[in-house]
Design a protein around this nucleic acid. Structure first.
Ligand SMILES: [Zn+2]
Ligand SMILES: [Zn+2]
Ligand SMILES: [Zn+2]
Ligand SMILES: [Zn+2]
Lengths: 156, 156
DNA sequence: AAATATTTGACATTTATTACCATTTGCAAT
DNA sequence: ATTGCAAATGGTAATAAATGTCAAATATTT
């Protein structure tokens, strides 16, 4: 019983309460339980995995609520969506080493080719623990079209 | 008519034919058309978008085929899946700046915290064209558990 | 405690992806 | 060119993830 509660560090709990109050969000037991579960694990669970875990302690939770609460948590910066910015796979015939920028305004995905980004060194302190094979970088920002539309050309 | 065909660079076409022959894959018009379409655009389309485009030239293509062919192309290195290594979103309560390693063996997602990775400089040559806001790095490799199991501890 | 605004739960629906299988097609050997 | 067979396709049906709806329940305010 105390096992999972100790993971809901009072830091995260305070941040949760603060953020909810700040934005006029109700402090519901569902929100608390879902964030508590997510904060108590490091395996980057899916919505379904969180649902499976939470329903043990909170009999009757709806899966809909889990999806909704997760979205809320992400929107207010209390959690982060690691994969799948959208729910569809995107394909690329360019198999050369390059990276991507996703436009936060229109969702476009642009190629970022830059030599300097292809020479990242893997963190030494982790060698031995894990094996690094490759990497790709996901930038987020704004594409040329949306930049032009908004007129926000910061040249600084 | 020549508009889209010129994009199917003879390089990619040769690579396609070579790879198919090398692995005993049939050279079907569906595979050719789908790769031709994908290679002729840079917008990282979804399977559905490719289907919409391809069916114009290849009346009667099945959406199933598009999904299947894309999978084949990715498996044989002729294309790349940019988003959604799997079709589910994963969540993280750690909103601090960090990166992720996805284990190619078991699919686990691990946090990679390393200061050196948080100081990437955005490619200068792109300043002005696009606006960079943030980034995250997706490593792929193998997690400690799978590394240990396979006994492949390369300490070099 | 009562009034009000928000959130939830159950169900239905949409959307992405995969499974299945009969038919067709690519391809190699006549 | 014809034949034979393995491989691939098309159509449909089935999963699975995610979202929409709305009355009932709950949190917050008064
Ligand atoms: Zn844009
Ligand atoms: Zn790309
Ligand atoms: Zn693993
Ligand atoms: Zn993480």
């Amino acid at each position: 019983m105390t096992r999972h509660e100790k993971h809901f560090s009072s830091n995260k709990e305070k941040e949760f309460e603060f953020t909810c109050r700040k934005h006029g969000l109700s402090l519901t037991i569902q929100r608390r339980a879902i964030l508590e579960n997510l904060a108590g694990r490091t395996d980057h669970p899916t919505a379904d995995q969180i649902y499976d875990a939470v329903k043990e302690h909170l009999k009757g939770v709806s899966k809909t609520t889990v999806y909704r609460v997760l979205e809320t948590l992400v929107n207010f910066g209390l959690a982060r969506k690691v994969n799948n910015p959208e729910a569809k796979a995107r394909f690329d015939a360019d198999t050369s080493r390059h990276h991507h920028l996703t436009c936060i305004t229109c969702g476009a995905v642009l190629d970022i080719h830059a030599q300097q980004l292809n020479r990242l060194s893997f963190p030494e302190e982790l060698h031995g623990d894990v094996e690094f094979i490759d990497y790709s970088i996901n930038f987020n920002g704004r594409c040329p079209a949306c930049l032009k539309k908004s007129g926000a050309k910061n040249t600084e």
